[in-house]
């Protein structure tokens, strides 16, 4: 009996911890998941201002402008729609007009976005997968393969994210 009751205690405490973890996970998944939109999806779904999102596409040529103290504005485009992005912070070293980019932040208007982190892969041949997919959907993708030639175990991308500690 003792062995049985102890086993019961063990199993019930394991279930309790698992339940606790599952509850936390479900709660967190509801609240802290961030959706990814391309510019066209952004226009179509018209997320309410204040919604936290990731957007991705190409940095429109000629759109980058310095507007203040370490603050820039640029347009993210899929060559059919644009989203204006404002960002305060250091742009990644490989951030360039015409290159793929992913920005995370909040919606501030119908086609406006305030980013708190901007991610651009450092390898010219590489494009963030979401961006590649979004562009493919729009028929804007010509390159044979998006696979990177560089592989490395280690931190090897340039990015900027002021909110991350």
């Amino acid at each position: 009996m003792r062995r049985k009751s102890r086993r019961l205690l063990l199993i019930s405490s394991a279930l309790a911890v698992a339940g606790f973890a599952a509850g936390l996970t479900l709660f967190a998944l509801r609240d802290s998941v961030v959706f990814f939109y391309g510019p066209t999806e952004f226009a179509e779904k018209a997320p309410a201002p204040g919604t936290r999102l990731r957007i991705g596409g190409l940095v429109a040529r000629g759109s980058l402008a310095h507007v203040g103290d370490a603050t820039v504005e640029f347009a993210v485009t899929d060559n059919s729609r644009d989203v204006r992005v404002r960002y305060t912070g250091l742009l990644p070293d490989l951030f360039r007009e015409g290159q793929g980019v992913v920005a995370e932040g909040v919606v501030s208007g119908p086609d406006r976005f305030i980013a708190d982190s901007v991610l651009a892969k450092h390898d010219e041949t590489y494009m963030p997968r979401e961006v590649a997919d979004a562009l493919k959907q729009r028929g804007e993708w010509q390159r044979e393969s998006a696979s990177a030639s560089v592989a490395s175990p280690g931190p090897a991308a340039v990015a900027a994210a002021p909110t991350l500690r």
Binding site: H122, Y126, G154, A156
Partner: peptide, 17 residues
């Protein structure tokens, strides 16, 4: 996860399906 590149990471790795 690291070698297939199925997830977008800030660290760069080879991704070949």
């Amino acid at each position: 996860l690291v070698r297939s590149g199925v997830l977008t990471s800030v660290h760069s790795f080879a991704s070949d399906p």
